[in-house]
Amino acid sequence: MSGMYEKLVDILVDHFAVDRGKITPDATFEELKMDSLFLVEFLLVIQSEFDVKLDDDAATLTDTIGHVAALLEDRTKATAQ
């Protein structure tokens, strides 16, 4: 998996006390027991961490970590260009 995915895993573990062993690219936020408020906070943290701007609805509880990693890869590439 991408370096971005690994960074998201670290944020989920360090900031949101998610079990590292439960995180896979296909795991949804819901499955990781992230509620809607935690998801909002997660989006705020990653925007600050990676200095990108995401829409409020960039991810929902049924999206996967892999989805957000791909989204961030796109955004950071776009910013770099």
Binding site: L37, V40, E41, L44, Q47, S48
Partner: peptide, 8 residues
């Protein structure tokens, strides 16, 4: 700035 304020 405002983007850094926690949703919690």
């Amino acid at each position: 700035g405002p983007d850094s304020v926690s949703a919690l």
